[in-house]
């Protein structure tokens, strides 16, 4: 049986490729893109007013609601704003850590640090958000630590959402930058120094241009993950994000939820197009 199969593929490279790729491509097209297509189709459906059941048929009602209702614009800008803030924060926090890991730490320390960075990902996301909820509460650890200085923590709200998201997605920024920095040969840095460049100039002219694609790659994670999240805002925020509106509608009004989901998709497509111009997909 095995022999006959082997004979079959012998001299038929196309057949070999087809057999190899059938399963993953099938999954991609049917499971992955298929569900996306169903969702996009659902965004044009609408609810029957009397029974509240979904009626299939083309209508632009949902998009009309999203564009004409100011609240959806406010929510979209709020979400994009926080996603951008989280991305910038994570980039600023991640770079020094990644630089130390890639260029300064000894190999043993390096692996310890990689584990330390990845460690939070091993615990449940919900538990981490729950822990932050406790820390941010009125009688929580943050207010306790700040009170000797006469300060008061942010409490629950958009600032808290920004803090928690920056914490949760940080590893997704550190790892790509770390990988990007590792790929820069030390000889390049020595050459820059030999040619008389001061450390600041080496950083600006050599390290930054070479790691920028990696930062952009990391930012895709932090930005898109923040854009779609609803659990953090529900736990430590008091305002809605795109994900919350999708969540609150997906049972009561699935077509509207599907239409709202189009917003982050469009935002991400634009973001990815910009990221591609910065070379984010060339080495990663």
């Amino acid at each position: 049986m095995g022999r006959r199969l082997a004979d079959l593929f012998q001299g038929h490279p196309r057949l070999t490729v087809a057999a190899l790729l059938a399963a993953p491509i099938g999954w991609l097209v049917i499971g992955y893109l298929g569900s996306l297509a169903v969702m996009l189709a659902a965004s044009f459906w609408h609810l029957n007013e009397l029974s509240g059941e979904v009626t299939q048929g083309f209508s632009l009602d949902n998009f009309d609601t999203i564009f004409s209702d100011e609240v959806y614009r406010t929510i979209t800008f709020r979400t994009i704003g926080v996603a951008a803030a989280v991305t910038v924060t994570d980039a600023i926090l991640a770079f020094p850590i990644a630089f130390y890991m890639a260029k300064l730490a000894k190999p043993r320390m390096q692996s310890v640090l990689v584990v330390a960075v990845l460690l939070p990902l091993w615990s449940s996301y919900l538990v981490k958000v729950g822990a932050w909820r406790l820390m941010l509460s009125e009688d929580g650890a943050i207010n306790w630590a700040l009170s000797p200085f006469g300060l008061h923590g942010p409490g629950y709200g958009t600032v808290a959402v920004w803090l928690v998201m920056s914490y949760i997605w940080l590893p997704y920024m550190i790892i790509p930058i770390y990988a990007g920095l590792q790929r820069i040969p030390d000889s390049l840095l020595s050459a820059s120094e030999d040619l008389g460049a001061k450390p600041a100039k080496t950083f600006r002219k050599v390290i930054m241009p070479l790691t920028f694609p990696a930062i952009v790659a990391g930012s895709i994670f932090t930005f898109s993950l923040t854009l779609g999240d609803y659990i953090t805002p529900a736990n430590v925020g008091n305002k809605q994000f795109i994900g919350n509106v999708v969540y609150s509608n997906f049972v009561a009004n699935l077509p509207l939820a599907a239409a709202i989901t189009v917003i982050p998709i469009v935002v991400m497509v634009i973001y990815l197009l910009i990221a591609r111009r910065f070379g984010a997909f060339e080495h990663v």
């Binding site: 609810l47 007013e49 509240g52 609601t65 209702d69 609240v71 959806y72 406010t74 929510i75 305002k239 809605q240 509106v245 609150s248 509608n249 009561a252 009004n253 509207l256």
Partner: peptide
């Protein structure tokens, strides 16, 4: 006003 109008208004209320 029907329930789905209540749901939409709730989104607007929370802002």
């Amino acid at each position: 006003m029907t329930y789905d109008q209540w749901v939409q208004a709730w989104t607007e209320i929370k802002g």
